[in-house]
Design a protein around this nucleic acid. Structure first.
Length: 117
DNA sequence: ACTTTGACTATAA
DNA sequence: GTTATAGCCAAAG
């Protein structure tokens, strides 16, 4: 699945969305982990940009399960309401303290480990 | 075609 | 533990 050969530009975005959709409920991952899985380890910011663009997608993407590597809800401001992201995560059993995921390591879902073949 | 921007990260102090 | 700095790279302006 990690396809470094992006013949179409939008394929990179597509890959990102695919991975995000594979994140199980109650689990979270980081932008960098997704980038690493896609073979673009240093493109974490681009992954974030892809999330920002995820609005224009027809199929919904659970972007609330993607946070930065500290477990901080950096993208909450981009949701319909700033509290939306936290609410969604809490509804999946994840606790949040001051915009930060409690016991982040325990909830972390690494696509490189979980999706490797 | 060039410059700016950003839902990031690693490193240094 | 913290803050500051510098790489990073694709999309937007």
């Amino acid at each position: 699945m990690p396809n470094k050969n992006y013949s179409n530009q939008s394929d990179f975005f597509e890959q990102v969305y695919q991975v995000v959709k594979l994140i199980p409920e109650g689990r979270v991952t980081s932008y960098g982990a997704i980038g690493a899985f896609l073979g673009a380890a240093r493109s974490a910011r681009v992954v974030g940009w892809a999330m920002n663009n995820a609005h224009s997608l027809s199929s919904p993407v659970p972007a609330h399960r993607v946070v930065n590597r500290n477990g901080l809800l950096t993208g909450k401001a981009h949701f319909s309401t700033p509290s939306r992201m936290q609410e969604l995560l809490e509804s999946e059993g994840i606790k949040i303290d001051t915009d930060k995921i409690v016991d982040f390591k325990h909830h972390f879902w690494d696509p490189v480990e979980e999706l490797k073949l």
